[in-house]
């Protein structure tokens, strides 16, 4: 599903260049359930943005489903984001003026589905995350957990194989966080590939595999030690 070798990402801020990723090799197979952990600033979000084709690496090779991402045009990348990837963010990132229904509908619009198809799909998705009765609510009229569930429904809109979640429970209390994690577990069982960034080791431990980052590199050090460090950071 994802083949990354020697991936680098440098950010240019004025005259200063900062390498957030300094040569990362990652391979993720289909229907894997992966957690990315690491201290703040270690490059987790940067890595995830690359995986989701929101950004392009400044070095290395990245194959997504056998496609070399660096060679793709902005429009092709937009298509990939639309059909192959579903994003879930810590800050939900819903359109504030649009209803739950309209938010979930957006990726379907970009995919060019007809009104009838969209209606069926949006209804199905919102029912699936348990928000069948809140379709007309705007983000301001929903709780954090509900907003994140709308965001998940939106991420699932075009049935992407890959779900990327950047600290999806970071803004939620333990209970709503647990509910969100349950949804991810279900999605994994349905065959989706799932990558979650988290500071919560309980969540990470439920995953099949943990990828550790430190200062822009994969951390292959002692596992137990790392776990403790991560817990401290969290």
């Amino acid at each position: 599903m994802i083949e990354m070798t020697g991936i680098r990402k440098a950010y240019q801020t004025g005259k200063i260049t900062f390498e957030a990723l300094r040569g990362v090799d990652i391979s993720i197979k289909e229907n894997e359930y992966i957690a990315i952990v690491g201290p703040s600033g270690s490059g987790k979000s940067t890595l995830m943005n690359l995986m989701g084709c929101l950004d392009k690496p400044t070095g290395g090779e990245f194959y997504l489903d056998t496609e070399r991402v660096e060679t793709l045009s902005p429009n092709q990348l937009a298509d990939i984001r639309n059909r192959k990837v579903g994003f879930v963010f810590q800050a939900f990132n819903l359109l504030p003026y649009a209803t739950a229904y309209e938010n979930v509908e957006l990726p379907l619009l970009y995919a060019g589905l007809s009104g009838k198809e969209r209606k069926a799909r949006v209804t199905e998705l919102l029912n699936r995350v348990g928000l069948g009765d809140k379709m007309a609510n705007k983000p301001t009229e929903m709780s954090g957990g509900e907003m994140q569930r709308v965001a998940i429904a939106r991420a699932l809109a075009n049935k992407p194989k890959l779900i990327l979640a950047d600290e999806p429970t970071g803004n939620l209390d333990t209970k709503s966080g647990r509910a969100i994690v349950e949804i991810f577990n279900d999605l994994w069982k349905d065959g989706h590939t799932i990558v979650i960034i988290t500071h919560d080791m309980h969540i990470a431990k439920r995953c099949q595999r943990i990828i550790r980052l430190k200062d822009g590199l994969l951390d292959t050090g002692n596992e137990e030690e790392e776990q403790e460090q991560s817990l401290k950071v969290a």
Partner: peptide, 10 residues
Amino acid sequence: GIKMALGAKK
């Protein structure tokens, strides 16, 4: 940004 993340083209 949100729209682009969801696949909106230029």
